[in-house]
């Protein structure tokens, strides 16, 4: 048996790949549910009902999808340029921490809301950028592989957040709980639906998807970033400034992850704790791959993950299936997606 590259991978197969991958992941996860003694069909029905069945469920799904779209975009733009940014989690935390930090400036209380919101978003994005520029600098200067450094910096970032919220940024009114001072009132994102947690961050995330698509498909920067990823040597010969392109990609990727944190803290939580993110940063990697690195596809992939996470919570209350099944399904779909992309590109010959 051997594999032969298809000359022209069909468009249909490329579109079907993520659907097939998700179905395959659901079948395997279904087996795990069955082994645990529940009916998989019933479990999936409950997951869908939990995620879409009520106004509250739907709003929770969209709220959950918001940071996932942004971390998915962060991974997608980086991976396209072969910048292995696995540090989305840490960048998200620093982005979140930057918002209450800025809010500690006395002037923030007197600013009108639109200015305050824009300032906070910008500071969050910059914080994320800085955390990614460190490992990129190490790669460009010393040749250190950024996969391991970005992974290690995730732990450093969360410890730094813990340090700040128990120290300089601790909320004195939180009865000793380690949490940061609250986000300034002027920077709280407006709600999209009454009496739910859904906030305007969703619109920002959707706008970012379109903006990233435009950047990648319609600008010189996008073309250079793609060229740097496909073949760095050929790109360098063609006059693409590799270092500068990678720095720009890192600013975009780290900025998006930082923005995810800033939006989560301005829209949902109102203050920073060390359990702000149920590994949104790592899920972003899966989402980027499921979307085949396409910025518009990221929206769909983030929705799929959000449905699994929100639905599994309510499903596990009804059946005695641990809600970790959502994490299992999402992680499995990354592996099945890799195989699906492979099958779309190669044919098997005996």
């Amino acid at each position: 048996m051997r594999f032969e590259r298809r000359d022209h991978p069909s468009r249909l197969l490329t579109v079907l790949a993520p659907i097939g991958a998700i179905l395959a992941a659901l079948v395997v996860a279904g087996l795990l549910i069955a082994i645990a003694g529940a009916n998989p069909i019933r479990a999936y029905g409950l997951i869908l009902k939990g995620a879409f069945g009520s106004r509250l469920g739907l709003s929770e799904t969209l709220t959950r999808a918001t940071p996932l779209i942004l971390t998915g975009l962060a991974a997608a733009v980086a991976f396209r340029a072969r910048l292995w940014n696995i540090g989305g989690e840490g960048q998200l935390y620093l982005g979140a921490l930057a918002v209450p930090a800025l809010g500690m400036l006395p002037i923030m209380a007197s600013l009108p809301a639109p200015i305050s919101i824009v300032l906070c978003l910008a500071v969050g994005a910059i914080a994320g950028m800085i955390l990614l520029l460190i490992p990129l600098g190490l790669r460009l200067r010393f040749g250190v592989d950024e996969v391991v450094t970005t992974l290690l910096l995730n732990f450093v970032a969360v410890l730094f957040v813990s340090l700040m919220i128990e120290g300089a940024m601790k909320d004195p009114l939180a009865f000793g709980w380690p949490q940061s001072v609250p986000v300034p009132d002027s920077a709280i994102l407006p709600k999209l639906m009454e009496r739910t947690r859904l906030h305007a961050g969703l619109l920002i995330a959707l706008a970012m998807s379109i903006a990233v698509w435009w950047l990648q498909a319609r600008t010189v920067f996008g073309m250079r970033a793609r060229a740097a990823g496909l073949n760095p040597r050929a790109a360098a010969f063609a006059g693409v400034p590799l270092g500068r392109t990678l720095i720009a990609v890192a600013c975009l990727s780290g900025g998006l992850a930082g923005l995810a944190g800033a939006i989560e803290v301005m829209g949902v939580k109102g203050y920073v704790t060390t359990d702000l993110s149920p590994s949104y940063g790592y899920s972003g990697i899966v989402i980027a791959m499921l979307a085949n690195l396409n910025p518009i596809g990221v929206i769909g992939a983030a929705l799929f993950s959000a449905v699994m996470f929100v639905g599994a919570d309510s499903m596990s209350r009804a059946l005695s299936i641990p809600s970790y099944i959502a994490d299992v399904t999402v992680a499995l779909s990354l592996l099945t997606m890799l195989v699906a992309i492979f099958l779309a590109q190669y044919r098997i010959r005996r």
Partner: peptide, 29 residues
């Protein structure tokens, strides 16, 4: 299959750890 070693490895990590938590929660509810 020759798939990306970076992404596959991360996928294995995400799958193996969430699978471990799932089994652990089943055994110790």
């Amino acid at each position: 299959l020759g798939l990306s070693q970076h992404v596959t490895g991360l996928g294995i990590t995400l799958f193996a750890s969430s699978f471990s938590y799932y089994v652990f929660r089943l055994a110790v509810p």
